[in-house]
Amino acid sequence: MAEHVAHDDHSEDHESHSTKFYWMIGGILAVVTALEVGIFLVESSFDATLFLVILLGLALIKGAGVIAFFMHLRGDAKIFQFVFLVPLLFAFTLCLGFLKLFSNHVGIAG
């Protein structure tokens, strides 16, 4: 019985710690979103390339935060990382390649 109570206390501690941690991550992601919008609003004071790099960097931070901490991929089984991150990487490559190839392509529509 004592062991059982001790186990429950431990669980509550664990939950409390996790909950605090998730709130912190949520707060950081909210700040990053606010930064994105703020930078968008003062776009004219940035060089176009710098603007692009900063916004893509902030989006990357947000995405990585969601994947690593909310989806718990960080520290999860390697096979989960493999089946998700490999297609993600392939998708990024595909996006960059197609943008490079077709953005100036004169097709039947557009």
């Binding site: 998700f84 297609p87 197609f98 943008l99 953005s103 529509a109």
Partner: peptide, 28 residues
């Protein structure tokens, strides 16, 4: 869980394709 992660992996390709298509036609 493995099946869902694999499904989400395939979904990244689906959405990236849609986003890329939009960006290309907007550039045009």
């Amino acid at each position: 869980k493995l099946g869902l992660w694999a499904f989400l992996g395939s979904e990244t390709l689906f959405f990236v394709t849609l986003i890329t298509t939009h960006l290309i036609f907007y550039a045009r």
